[in-house]
Computed example of a mutant assay.
Amino acid sequence: MNAPTTIAQTDRHRPGRVRQGRRVADRLLRVSCTVATAVGGLVLGSILIMLIIRGIQGFTPALFTHPTPGPGSEGGGIANAILGSLVLTGIGITIATPVGVMAGTYLAEYGRGSKLAALIRFLNDILLSAPSILIGLFVYTLMVRPMGTYSGWAGGVALAIIAVPVIVRTTEDMMSLVPSTLREAGAALGAPPSTVIVSVTWRAASAGIVTGIILALARIAGETAPLLFTALNNNSWFSPDLMGGVANLPVMIYQFALSPYPNWQGLAWAGALLITATILVLSIIARLVIKPHTSR
């Protein structure tokens, strides 16, 4: 009685037919991935080629030694904007790194399954997807209006708020990938949890944590919207107390690219190429420095 059913089932699930369907699906998926990669590479390549061609024309010694010129002026450089971007990015990443690493460590080591950790993850996801212009408006209300002026401190805080969720998420993910046996080995030797985290978990996840910091640095290096409401811009050197407008590359590129002056447009292309090259160099250096530690 069961013979016809068994034969039908065997005929329906022949290995040859299953393999043929999988081959077709595999080929379609490979073709789709190849086409998508080619289109993405073509678009990215065209942007980079245009950026290199237009930006390299503005690379002169004056670019790194002279401040930005006035409207309609010839010559000049972006030295003040470069220095301002370094200062703002440095303030932002200096504030964000300890906060992000500590928060990620708490979520991965102490807050597993707790309601507080779930709340922190929820707020972190909101910050991670929040438009940067809203963060700029928030810092404007929090710092710029009470102080009565734009400042580099407000710009640094805005960039820090953008960088923190990236570092938190990466730190938690990397520390969660560390095998629990390493923690158990440290605890078996009598080390307190803090020592295990610092000497074992952080060391094992150091490559991923540093990568997260670099990703956060790359994220805030080109942010324009929050700086429009906090640090604004300045065509001259900023004051040592960072009060008033502080020149920076993102806002300078935004303003100069929209201007009708060819000299300003050329400086905008050069600044965009400089930011791109800097992030690329930082990523390469980080990989070269981290690779010997991860191979041990």
Rank of each mutant, 00 (worst) to 15 (best):
A225V: 00
G156D: 07
A96N: 06
I47T: 14
I167D: 00
G136V: 05
A221K: 03
V198N: 04
G212L: 04
L123R: 05
A185Y: 09
A130S: 15
L267I: 11
A158L: 04
P15W: 13
P240G: 15
L29V: 15
G77D: 03
P226M: 13
D241Y: 11
E223R: 04
R287G: 14
V99D: 01
V39M: 09
V39L: 14
R54Q: 15
I133N: 11
A205F: 09
T171C: 09
S199W: 05
I220H: 00
G58F: 11
A36G: 13
Y261S: 14
G41C: 13
S283K: 12
V139A: 00
Q255A: 07
A36M: 12
V43R: 12
F256R: 01
R27M: 05
P226R: 13
L29S: 11
F138H: 08
A160Q: 14
V87W: 15
L28F: 12
L42G: 11
V281R: 09
V144H: 05
S32I: 15
A257K: 10
I126N: 02
G45A: 11
V200Y: 11
G41S: 09
G186Y: 02
F256D: 04
R112M: 05
L228W: 08
L267M: 08
S129M: 05
D11V: 01
A8N: 07
I284E: 15
G245D: 02
G84V: 08
I91W: 01
R169G: 01
A205C: 05
L128R: 06
V246G: 00
S132P: 10
A36R: 13
L242A: 00
L189Y: 10
R112P: 02
I220D: 00
M147E: 15
